[in-house]
Amino acid sequence: MNHGPLLFLAAFFALASSWCGFVLAPQLQVGQMQQTNTLSGGATYPVARPGEAQQGLQVYRANGCASCHSQQVRQSGTVCDVVLTEAGTNQAALIPALVTLKCGTIPTQAEQRAAATAKDKPPARLQEFSEPGARDLLAHLPQPVRQGLTREEANADVKALTAAGAKASIWIVPVGPDISRGWGRRRTVAEDFLFDYPVMPGVQRVGPDLANVGLRLPDASWHLRHLYAPRLYEKGSTMPPYRFLFEKRKIGKEPSPEALALPAEFAPEAGLEIVPKQAAKALAAYLTSLRADAPLFVAPLVAASPTTAAATNAPGASEPVSTHAVPTTAPTK
């Protein structure tokens, strides 16, 4: 019995099916993707990276940076924050409503989680929230009233506030370990890579995720110094130094404006200076261009602006990301 042709056809079918599924279909769906608008301002997203950053992407590729750094932020879900936008005219009704909400009996998801993780402690009590506090809150609108709610809880809150004559809205806040770590404000989606070639979301996190490194560390000269001597900022860093992207040369008539300002430990001998080559500058430009934080329809996000969030006393997932989370906080235990 000759099964050859049958075998060929069957295997062909099996191969073709997965090909249609994972090559053709993504090409039709993701490959045809166009720029979209952000949710908040309606700005076009994404815009192509500037030319130097595009060169930097090639430096990133050529040196295999993606072997150690991922560019995908993951989120485990979203929670809702209720934000009071306008107080309305009926403060007499609003203030008791606020006090009931904040001292209410429903613990928010965040509080439930906190209670679940700290088993030996008594369940976290809701914060004391009194009338002066409410007045204070009303003076700085818009303000988050409660954070870390489910959609239903948030709807109920909004209903209660609206009944008191105020206007409130619901903010959607992505949560997850990556986001609490300060690696991004929402998950990474296909749109973020629209104009990149090659797309390198990475396979492993030997080093920190870089999807939003431009947001955390917007200073290109920081990146240059870090590329030259990673241990400058982090004693235990396992990142190899990229000295070959820099040129060590004699100082001319006057020091180059581009020369790295290095502490004595890493500085070259007297009379020499470290100047980044074009590749290093491009790479730094690329790294600072990495910021995927636009709120999109597929990944909604209304992050609290830093001022308002800092003013709240409730701990929440939407707390603004410390811009120096990775390099400066180095509690080496």
């Binding site: 997965s18 090909w19 994972f22 090559v23 993504p26 090409q27 993701v30 490959g31 045809q32 993707m33 989606v189 296909a190 749109e191 973020d192 890579f193 629209l194 104009f195 990149d196 070639y197 090659p198 797309v199 979301p201």
Partner: peptide, 18 residues
Amino acid sequence: LLVKFPVRGAAQVAVWAY
């Protein structure tokens, strides 16, 4: 689809994974 005539954006991720 990845090297010669690269597909656009994240579709590369799908082809690569495939």
